[in-house]
Design a protein around this nucleic acid. Structure first.
Lengths: 336, 336
DNA sequence: CTGTTAGCGCATTCAT
DNA sequence: ATGAATGCGCTAACAG
């Protein structure tokens, strides 16, 4: 098994180009200047034999693997996957390949994943949001070059790629307010998550700036998933506090909210307006299409990858804070 | 940079355990029997020094990388991602780690991706559906051990993991028929895709078995994406052929269908019933929740990974054909 | 059963 | 500028 492809080595092309292995290595890596003549000879041989350097051998010798580890928490959650796509794109063109490990939210499994990655001598790490404690990630950051995608950890300046959650939430809330809503609910993500905290802060600030008093009965904590959206509506209805709009901290929760409202026979947006956060691909196709705060997910992933590569090359790189964009669709309308 | 972690080598633990490097290697790989005494000594040393074998060195020496390449076509499409999750799970526990490369549907980029993977000496490949021509995949299969996930290629027996699309489609159509519908539309996926063909076949067979004549005006070709769902409805309305139910070849298309119907003021399921295919996570949260044919996506990915690993170890492995399951929710109801 | 000897393919000192 | 030699960390014959 295991085939015999990848048989031609640096030695073969050395012989063919009538130079030493060292010289071949040199032109391939541009380490030192080589006579133009020999250089072309080598390049020619490489082309002729369709030579592919053996990444492992190179890694062994050079002490680096040219791989970056990608630590996901729950691959196959829509937002994360969009970011992931960006990572793949950002890595393309670089010499690095991504190797994956999924923690599945399970602490033990996550440590296992990290172990695997480290054992493989990944040169750097891209860590995906999730529930991993900030501390754990900081510890990791001390051991290996690392960038965090889709999440903001204060103690890791210029190593996190994320959006301005505060501004996005502010914008969403303000939009609802300007539509005439006053009793605006905010369904938060897991509040142990900084992003959720920031969005909550944005919501509150907008309410205050609009001269509204904060009613904590209008805030419900969810966990970013659909189910928590339906639960939230039930909670709200139970509380009996009237409301005319709901700003959900994630599109997935907005889906759940919409369904729960439907079950209760409450029309959207006629009776209650909904605004989400993320702008997942399918949010443009819900009924009604969801008004939401767009995060440039792909761009985030891409930036994370590029930042990490730059870091590995000791090149300077400033990670920008991305801004969100309000995508107006039909799930929210003027009140009254 | 690049840290100095991973400094302890096999030699260190050899010294500490007072044995030769070979012996260490032996107990680590279970290649040959070693004296119980020395074995425990080695294990002890390994534990003491927290030794992690260098995967690259091991790969170089043994001629295998212990990595498998995962070729995706459009990561971040919901169904594929679910399968992907399965792959990760299936690989966990094995000694193999996944390296990703995304073809993005672009032929050139796809070849590039394959190049990358091969250059990294992946021991095997898991290829994701997508539009890659069967031929291309077959060629690949000759060069490297490979398994296809979520797609059926006839010329690669026991190397494809997929569901019984025919049966699933049949089941869905039959369900609609039993509900009293007679003018049942089928919105197909890309018909260049075997899975789409099979589903179409299942639809037709069910219609026939129910004593209905096939009306090709009731079949519309889509491309698995939401947008084609809305287009399809427009097409249908234009054709003027009455219909009371739509069986979409993917949940995503079903979303599009539902939206288009909503736009036209056609109620679901009161006036038109909808059934999808896939059972994406969010399909339980649409309004109304989508009746659909569930594919065990995660299981499919997992099986693909396990099959590949078995293949690489020259162990026998029979890939089962998975069956679908009709998930009855609210988007379809009795006609009349 | 176990130590010794060779490489795996490449990068990198060294001399030259 | 370039060839020869050395070693990265590990596995795999090879003898004992």
């Amino acid at each position: 098994m295991a085939a015999t492809r990848q048989n031609i080595t640096i030695k073969d092309i050395a012989r063919r180009a009538k130079v030493s292995k060292s010289t071949v290595s040199r032109v391939l890596n541009g380490t030192t200047a080589v006579a133009e003549e020999k250089k072309t000879a080598v390049l020619q041989a490489v082309a002729d034999l369709n030579y592919q350097p053996n990444v492992m051998a190179r890694g062994l010798a050079a002490g680096q693997s040219l791989t970056v580890g990608v630590l996901t928490q729950n691959i196959s959650s829509p937002y994360n996957d969009a970011v992931l796509l960006g990572v793949l794109q950002g890595l393309r063109g670089s010499d690095y390949s991504p190797i994956f490990a999924d923690g599945s939210w399970i602490l033990e499994q996550e440590e296992q994943a990290i172990q695997t990655l480290v054992a493989r001598q990944v040169d750097g790490l891209i860590v995906f949001g999730g529930e991993t404690p900030d501390e754990t990630i900081c510890d990791l950051a001390r051991q290996v070059p690392l960038v965090v995608a889709g999440r903001n950890i204060a103690k890791l300046p210029n190593q996190c790629v994320y959006v301005n959650n505060f501004a996005g939430a502010y914008q969403a809330t303000q939009y609802l307010l300007e539509l005439g809503h006053e009793r605006v609910v905010h369904l938060t993500g897991k509040l142990s998550h900084v992003d959720a905290q920031e969005r909550l802060r944005g919501y509150r600030q907008a309410m205050i700036d609009h001269g509204l008093s904060l009613d904590e009965e209008l805030v419900v904590e969810g966990n970013f998933q659909e189910q928590s959206g339906v639960l939230a509506v039930e909670t709200l209805l139970l509380r009996g506090r009237p409301f005319t709009a709901i700003f959900a901290g994630s599109d997935q929760m907005a889906y759940g909210v919409r369904l729960a409202l439907y079950r209760r026979g409450i029309r959207v947006p006629a009776e209650v307006s909904i605004v989400g956060f993320d702008d997942l691909g399918s949010s443009a196709y819900t009924t009604p299409p969801l008004t939401t705060v767009r995060q440039p997910a792909v761009k985030i992933g891409q930036t994370a990858a590029e930042a990490l590569v730059a870091m590995l090359k000791n090149e300077p790189y400033i990670i920008p804070v991305f801004q969100t964009e309000l995508i107006v669709r039909e799930s929210a309308m003027r009140y009254r």
